[in-house]
Design a protein around this nucleic acid. Structure first.
Lengths: 341, 341
DNA sequence: CGTTCTACGTATACCGTTCTACAAATCAAG
DNA sequence: CTTGATTTGTAGAACGGTATACGTAGAACG
């Protein structure tokens, strides 16, 4: 008779004692390690259930894995992230892994401080929504911990995996759709980042936009405006854009949230949507579908992105080192905000 | 000359060696413990900076604190949670504490699985947005780990702290505002939860609504509809409510998200807002302020809620055991959706 | 000058796992 | 029945901190 440890928590030692095997054997069962007979496994699992044993993650972290993945978000306003998380959880459902989230300040970049905190806490791997990190920083991080980046278009020779939407195609889809609906003067409203790099999704969407505009013979109408990602700055930029003498009759917004703001400004200026102005967003978040918005958007299936990210990260934790890059094909969802003129 | 440990990580031992003191002394400096002279502190801090030492959280968790707080959310769609988090981070800015988030499935309750995961990972304390947990479960959790609940109205004799908006007053404010604007047939659209309990914010908002309706002599117009918290169910409930022969001319929605859905349904049914129907939400999230929505809402300052939650939790971690309950006073923000008739 | 405090530092057991190296048991083959 | 190979289980040293118990040097006191 040994009773509980003073801490109140059931330990692996008590499980071992209860099932009459060694501590090491229990550990093996827990980790599905090699060299454990069915009978032993059964004995141990019975004891675990009986005692309500749960492994102590901190103790695990001292030697092996913590079975915890860190998911880093720049903010939590964007409902699109929620879809990604949902896909992630689906993928992890039947595994031992759990996800914990780290969220930076609203509108800000994913913070290095947060990444360090995750590493300190012995996460087995990191999934980062990373539009705004410098690639040098990313490489350093990935050298220390298995990492998957979402929404970050890699250059050559990186040491992490990526999961992306084909943002270039997405940008082109929007232009094609608008042109087919009779719009010509199409502006692109993008985000302004201090340390701009080519890996950002906005850059790729812009490339797709520019190329499609040129292909459609509308090069002279190309207009790109960048605004900081706050409600105030966005509204100012949109207002400025719509009050100029030769205003665009369609605005392609790099993400839905911006599209909602633009719609708001348009209403304030008494512009009919889509009569005077077409608006298109990106991510096809739930807000697009509401009648008062009804915004055309590009769907990039956050679920799939999250699922693939989880798959890649676990592969990487298990030992893969050469980088892999997954791409999903976007799909345009047309709504009232861009009906034919 | 000792060099780095094989792991690649700088350990407390190396810091001790570098600064010529004992491991225990370094630990004391890290924890601001008693019995360390300024000169020793300086030496140690210099070495820490020089070597770039960072404490290993898992190792800390074995004996002491992890300086990590768990923040549990039912979902991440609600931008209101983001405000709370922001307040939380503000409060923790100058401390050693970091926050990690756990998010349950969209629309679902905060999951027991997630709470267990947090406890396994040796969080020092938990902040839970907890409308939908059974109070028995909550007590059991709080007995194991310092806990603060947000948006959960406690009965007597609990073993955790709470931070709340005065939801009863909030509900009354809405009714008063609508009555003053000339609306009489005011319905309340609430959420349906399987294990309904009296602690939920919706229940308190409903109480405030009912009382205010009675005080205004509108008892005969009291109408409460409950819907599951999905877009589909909400729309069905709203549609049903608005298609009945004697439809209400104002709907008070328990949270902004629902108000947006109701607005959408109203538009679909060609009802003018506020002409035919007034709509009021709760939480005053950013979406209320957009022109296409312009929804009257009740502000309960998520920032303050988060800040107070952090304060209470840290007090509790430091040893306080008697429960404390903090309440913030709500404020109605009037917008177009409820203009006078 | 001896004694008692106080303030500062140190040595080391301990936390709950993992995992390596090894022992014991079982099996296959000759 | 022996021998070697394979499978199954075990002992015990890490892992990197924390915290307790204790040592020691001055200061203060009589």
């Amino acid at each position: 008779m040994v009773g509980r440890a003073k801490s109140g928590r059931v330990t692996i030692r008590e499980v071992a004692e209860d099932s009459g095997v060694s501590v090491a054997a229990v550990s093996k069962v827990l980790r599905d390690a090699y060299g454990v007979s069915p009978s032993l496994r059964l004995k141990v699992q019975t004891s675990i259930a009986k005692l309500g044993y749960r492994p102590h993650t901190a103790a695990r972290g001292m030697r092996g894995q913590t079975y915890t993945l860190g998911f880093l978000l720049p903010d939590m306003h964007n409902p699109f992230f929620s879809d990604i998380l949902s896909g992630l959880n689906t993928a992890l459902e039947r595994t031992q892994y759990q996800t914990l989230l780290g969220v930076s300040g609203p509108g800000a970049a994913v913070d290095m401080v947060l990444i360090e905190a995750m590493i300190d806490r012995q996460m087995d791997g990191l999934i980062i929504i990373g539009p705004s990190l410098l690639s040098e920083d990313m490489k350093r991080v990935a050298a220390r911990i298995p990492t998957v980046l979402i929404a970050y278009h890699p250059l050559q020779g990186v040491n992490f995996d990526t999961v992306n939407d084909d943002d270039r195609l997405g940008g082109a889809l929007v232009v094609q759709h608008l042109v087919a609906a009779g719009y010509k003067h199409i502006a692109f409203l993008s985000q302004q980042i201090s340390d701009a790099e080519q890996m950002m999704v906005t850059t790729h969407r812009e490339m797709g936009y520019r190329e499609a505009m040129e292909r459609a013979g509308l090069a002279r109408h190309i207009q790109v405006v960048k605004a900081l990602q706050t409600s105030r700055e966005t509204q100012i930029a949109a207002r400025h854009l719509l009050e100029q003498r030769n205003r665009p009759n369609a605005i392609f917004c790099w993400t839905d949230f911006i599209a909602l703001e633009v719609l708001s400004v348009a209403r304030d200026l008494n512009l009919a949507v889509p009569g005077d102005l077409a608006i298109v967003g990106y991510d096809n978040t739930s807000y697009c579908d509401l009648s008062q918005n009804s915004i055309t958007s590009v769907d990039q299936s956050g679920q799939v992105l999250g699922l693939q990210a989880a798959r890649l990260l676990i592969e990487r934790i298990k030992g893969r080192t050469e980088p892999e890059h997954y791409t999903v094909t976007p799909r345009l969802v047309a709504r009232t905000s861009s009906s034919a003129r």
